[in-house]
Design a binder for these strands. Structure first.
Length: 560
DNA sequence: CCTGGGCGCGCG
DNA sequence: AAAGCGCGCGCCCAGG
């Protein structure tokens, strides 16, 4: 059973569909009563809810304590289908995206635009239904409709999960965070000021470079001061600095580390993103806004708060509520394992057995040490050509011809300007017009060597992108299916008020916030979910996807 | 004053 | 000074 939901200002239309997509029943009701209706349907027949944009609907449902089992997000699935079938006519305009967080101040341009009669996002219920039918017909015409259906279901489940995580938040301890900052940087300064240890470090730098007015935060000033001190550098990046032999290096690296912590996750960040709790039974909450499908490969992006870059330094501030635990699980080496699965490479599948794939490569004689094996494998996934990774490539290609063949083929396609696809059918975009123009210019009769070199460079760059796309994208869809299966299983655990719930997702890592007595069971469900997702996505292919799981009170203790 | 690009660095 | 992919964000700085 499917039910289409369309928001019409303060009204909502709900169309219950028969199997052939004809309308079996139609309900119109005030928007405020939607949670009530949804809750009722969830108890009755738990339909698949079809709507334009999950962000437009579920925040209201969650606020009322209502969660749906499954949905189809037409905005997200439409994007995937458009990339898969670029030659089909797709309706314009595309609806605007709805963000979860606070809206930025409207610009003058927005104010002018809003004076026109704006259509409801996604249109009428009939419009939404028509788009749904068009998408279903498109899926049916795909080479592998089953895989594509799975991808769209997983993408939509991801949208539900993202809004739920935003609603629940990641449990945080502002006091622990403040203690970390104070220990690293010194006491919190007045707004705009530098904390004591950072200021002291800047002073040492000025001293050792004999540059009394230098602001080490300015790369331009810093580079000039370094060169005046006789150092041969062309960038102020820490990679370059590390190689220098000069007394300023140590305080400079320390300054950079501290300055980074202050600006990225300092007190200002905490005030902006971590809501203080007034309930002693609950910690504070960091509410990351995830953007499913925000990365071209299918990974999630984030908007505001930088949830995907939580530095290890401050992870001790991620703390379970009293009486609760964090179940932290990390899928080790998910990308090379995904490559083994999608390529059907028996040898690489054999190496994947056990918990450490890189050690498996060593045992297979591909490399002498684990680190060498890792460098070689990542080099194959990213397209390394020089250095240690480049040197190890021939042996890797000889040992795993099918696995390396998949990425090499993807690279060649990209170099020609073609598109590639993931295992479930997410397509890459073609290169931009400027890329095509550069290739065309290079193939003109009088093209200069410089023009040809530039075109070759761009072709190789695009080949590395498509090479990585097939693996990163396939790993991302496995992770998404893992998440969706885990959400389904968690929904059946515990009392509604005390239910374990997902609070964090980081490409190949999840955190579930769970009442302590259920934590062991949750850990088992996390593992079972990945096993089930692997089977659903790839079938029974004999590639292991092991998990590192920890039940901890704070995230830092998971020690990945 | 605001905006956009480049740099640098955090994460996978 | 990154070799080798994908991101977001804060800072500086130049230009409008």
């Amino acid at each position: 059973m499917e039910s289409v939901v369309a928001v019409w200002g303060e009204q909502v239309d709900v169309l219950d569909l028969a199997a052939d997509h004809s309308v079996a029943a139609r309900t119109r009701l005030p928007r405020t009563r939607l949670p009530e209706l949804v809750a009722e349907r969830e108890r009755e027949n738990a339909p698949r809810w079809v709507w334009t944009d999950t962000n437009q609907i579920t925040p209201q449902l969650l606020a009322a304590g209502v969660r749906v089992q499954r949905c189809l997000d037409l905005r997200l699935s439409g994007t995937i289908l458009q990339h898969a079938f670029p030659d089909r006519p797709w309706p314009e305009p595309h609806w605007p995206t709805v963000t979860l967080g606070e809206q930025p101040e409207p610009t003058l341009l927005d104010a002018l635009a809003s004076q026109e009669d704006a259509p409801a996002p996604g249109g009428s219920a009939e419009d939404v239904l028509a788009e749904h039918v068009r998408q279903q017909e498109t899926v049916a015409a795909a080479a592998q409709p089953g895989r594509l259906r799975l991808l769209l279901a997983a993408e939509s489940a991801g949208a539900l999960i993202a809004t739920e995580i935003y609603q629940d938040g990641l449990p945080w301890d502002r006091q622990v965070h403040d203690e970390i900052l104070t220990a690293e940087l010194g006491a919190r300064p007045a707004p705009g000021g530098r904390p004591e240890r950072l200021a002291a470090s800047a002073e040492v730098i000025r001293d050792r470079l004999e540059a009394p007015t230098l602001n080490p935060d300015s790369p331009v000033e810093l580079l000039r001061a370094l060169r005046r001190a006789g150092l041969d550098v062309s960038t102020t990046s820490k990679w370059a600095l590390r190689e220098l032999d000069h007394p300023v290096v140590e305080p400079l690296l320390e300054f950079k580390r501290m300055a980074r912590l202050l600006s990225a996750n300092g007190w200002a960040w905490m005030d902006a993103w971590v809501a203080a709790s007034t309930d002693p039974a609950r910690r504070d909450r960091f509410r990351p806004e995830y953007v499913p499908g925000g990365v071209i490969t299918g990974r999630w992006a984030t908007s505001g708060g930088g949830a995907l870059q939580l530095p290890k330094q401050i992870r001790a501030a991620v703390r379970a509520d009293p009486g609760w635990r964090l179940v932290v699980a990390d899928a080790a080496q998910i990308e090379p394992r995904a490559l083994a699965a999608m390529s059907g490479d028996r040898g690489l599948a054999d190496a994947s057995r056990g918990t450490d794939l890189y050690q498996g490569l060593v045992d297979a004689g591909v490399a002498a040490t684990r680190n060498e094996a890792k460098v070689a494998m990542l080099g194959a996934l990213y397209g390394a050509t020089t250095g240690a990774a480049g040197q190890l490539m021939p042996r890797l290609i000889r040992t795993y011809p099918r696995a390396t063949g998949v990425v090499e083929e993807a690279a060649r396609t990209g170099e020609r300007g073609g598109v590639v696809r993931t295992w479930l059918g997410r397509f890459s975009v073609p290169p931009p017009d400027t890329w095509q123009e550069a290739q065309a210019a290079a193939s003109q009769p009088g093209a200069t060597p410089a023009v040809e070199a530039k075109a070759r460079q761009q072709a190789r760059d695009w080949g590395r992108f498509t090479r990585n796309f097939v693996v990163q994208g396939t790993a991302a869809e496995l992770a998404l299916c893992w998440l969706a299966e885990l959400r389904r299983r968690l929904a059946g655990l515990g009392d509604p008020a005390e239910r374990p719930h997902l609070v964090y997702f980081l490409h190949d890592e999840v955190i579930v916030h769970s009442p302590e007595p259920l934590a062991e069971q949750v850990a088992a469900e996390v593992a079972a979910s990945l096993a089930e997702a692997t089977r659903i996505v790839f079938g029974r292919i004999g590639v292991d996807f092991p998990l590192q799981t920890a039940i901890v009170e704070n995230y830092a203790d998971a020690e990945h």
